[in-house]
Amino acid sequence: MSWFKRVKEGIITPTDEKKSVPDGLWHKCPRCKKAVVAKDHEANCYVCPSCNYHDKIGSAEYFGLLFDEGAYAELFANIKPTDPLGFYDTKDYKSRLTESQKKSGLSDALRVGVGKVEEMPLVVACMDFNFIGGSMGSVVGEKIARAIDYARENRIPVMVISKSGGARMMEAAFSLMQMAKTSAKLALLAKEGIPYISLLTDPTTGGVTASFAMLGDFNIAEPEALIGFAGPRVIRETIGKDLPKGFQSSEFLLEHGFVDMIVNRTELKSRLGKLLRMLA
């Protein structure tokens, strides 16, 4: 019996792998724990150079790394959420919204930008996971619908970047109907022969998967993202067994025929440019 006893279970990091990383200047990969200079990490599209872990990033980062010179015009920023049902669980939805807005500096979980990608015009609607789990409420649905309308009016291809836990419970059936709304708008876009690209990132689940995220002319996934309809916890509880390794990953979806390609974020812009030029 040693005189020293570990209080917390499960700490198994060997001493030589431990790193102390100062905040700001360095970025420590949440998966491989290796440190990289924050600037280099950003230059590498927030992808770990050691293990290729794609860090979870938001609309600001995606717009910055996709649009030429980071230049774009934001559309429909004046559309803001409300609390149509007076929803109350452990906290009221109104305060949840205010808190999330304060914490994230965003008004809801999706922003739309229009700009150029390798000189090709593109409308991008990008979800922000750090706003109530990227959940889809009325604002997300409405902004996607208007982004599609904008793309139709101006005959510009459109891309939606999904990163979401699914529909927003606090807007209940209002959220549900955003699935029908966005899908119907995509039907109109398809009629006009304007390309729609769906980029699926970690995570893309629930009502988002069961609507616009799966409807791309091109379904592109980032590596190792979780993509599925039912959440892994729900499936595990339903079938009463552990899930196979890699289940509901980008690679699993590629294998089963639901995404066209997996593209590293570092190559995303050039791939999009190529694609847009081919379809122009």
Partner: peptide, 20 residues
Amino acid sequence: PGLEAEERGQGEAIAKNLLE
């Protein structure tokens, strides 16, 4: 919700119906 439903694209199947 299940393994086979996910393998065969539950999300895609529903999404397609909404569009069509």
